[in-house]
């Protein structure tokens, strides 16, 4: 078997790049979150560490690294450590199937800016997201603390409930695109010039609401409700293990923002980019930039919502998920199916 070293090198570089970018974006999301919170509350936000407080994430990370590590005596030690590691791993895994850009041509080789173009891309994301709850559940349970346990139970039921509506919103999208590959979906939007959000507005709203719930972001942050559960599943955590949990949330936010940009907002496509008279490589890089701008807009949206809307009550959360979102998602599927049939004839 001939080993294609260039291919392996390319993939390794790509994986490293995507990981590093995810981590950096997550790091600066913490800064962004505090800055957005600040300016929305007529404050300045962090501005002491470096210009505009830009070194704040480094300071926070350094602090977390040097904090004392506490493992509760009555906890299950192995699972206690497994919890945050799992949360972090799962958060990083999703980025593998997102097409970060079109292809680059370097020295005669065509390099795809997607780690793995699997033909089940969306299902892969779905699988990984459904595993995300294990980190929270195991962490919460192994802490041997009532609040943590309650929180992990909340998180589990919340994520399972909203996964359904999310899946059904996606099925409607798949009915339109006819492909599970994220690359195909982006290319279709690029060729037709119509972003899926215009085809599936209802589906997008459902997907948006569900991704808030899946990332445990406000107003769905019941799992870490600080006023009733004292922080929930990461109550007993300290040091970098706490950091992992917090970090995983931001990575999840980044990935779901990228996913929403990819699925509904044309990924790396923007009108007029293809008609520019520049080399294809530059078009690709500009496309990647476009995707990142879209993603950052979504991240800002996540933060904007967080600093506007108060948290749901638990029964409200369940009612919204099961009584409203799932029927609406089903209706959306029905409408989409009817629309497709009507177009075929």
């Amino acid at each position: 078997m001939q080993v294609d070293w260039f291919f392996i090198l390319e993939k390794v570089l790509l994986i490293t790049g995507v990981l590093i970018i995810s981590l950096v974006v997550a790091m600066y999301s913490t800064w962004g979150e505090r800055k957005v919170a600040g300016i929305m509350q007529d404050r300045l936000g962090p501005n002491r560490a470096g210009p505009l407080g830009l070194l704040q994430p480094l300071a926070d990370g350094g602090k977390l690294f040097f904090k004392e590590e506490i493992i509760p005596g009555a906890s299950n030690r192995f699972l206690f450590i497994l919890g945050p590691s799992l949360a972090m791993t799962v958060a990083c895994m999703t980025s593998a199937v997102i097409p970060w850009g079109d292809t680059l041509t370097i020295a005669g080789h065509t390099v795809s800016l997607q780690v793995a173009d699997v033909n089940i891309g969306i299902l892969y994301i779905f699988g990984v997201v459904s595993l995300g709850v294990y980190g929270i559940m195991l962490g919460g349970w192994s802490s041997n603390n009532k609040f943590s346990l309650l929180s992990s139970i909340r998180a589990a039921s919340q994520i399972i409930s909203y996964e359904l509506a999310m899946g059904m919103a996606l099925i409607a999208l798949l009915m339109v695109t006819g492909s599970l590959s994220l690359k195909d979906i982006v290319e279709q939007q690029r060729q037709s010039g119509v972003w899926n959000v215009f085809v599936q507005p209802l589906g997008f709203i459902i997907f948006l609401i569900c991704s808030f719930a899946e990332t445990n972001r406000s107003p769905f942050d019941l799992a870490e409700a600080e006023n009733e559960l004292n922080g929930g599943y990461h109550l007993e955590y300290s040091s970098m293990k706490l950091g992992f949990f917090l970090f995983a949330e931001y990575i999840n936010m980044f990935i779901s923002s990228a996913l929403m940009s990819t699925l509904y907002f044309g990924g790396y496509h923007i009108w007029g980019l293809d008609s520019l008279h520049v080399s294809p490589n530059i078009v690709t890089i500009l496309g990647t930039l476009v995707l990142f701008i879209k993603t950052i807009c979504f991240i800002f949206f996540f933060m904007w919502v967080r600093w506007t809307i108060p948290r749901f009550r638990y029964d409200q959360l369940m009612r919204l998920g099961w009584n409203y979102l799932i029927p609406i998602a089903l209706l959306n599927m029905l409408i989409t199916g009817g629309w497709i049939l009507w177009h075929q004839h």
């Binding site: 300016i39 929305m40 404050r43 904007w304 919502v305 506007t308």
Partner: peptide, 15 residues
């Protein structure tokens, strides 16, 4: 509500 919070971005900060 989101319009209100967005408006606050451009308000003078009393800090």
């Amino acid at each position: 509500g989101m319009v209100i919070t967005f408006k606050h971005i451009f308000q003078k900060k009393p800090t």
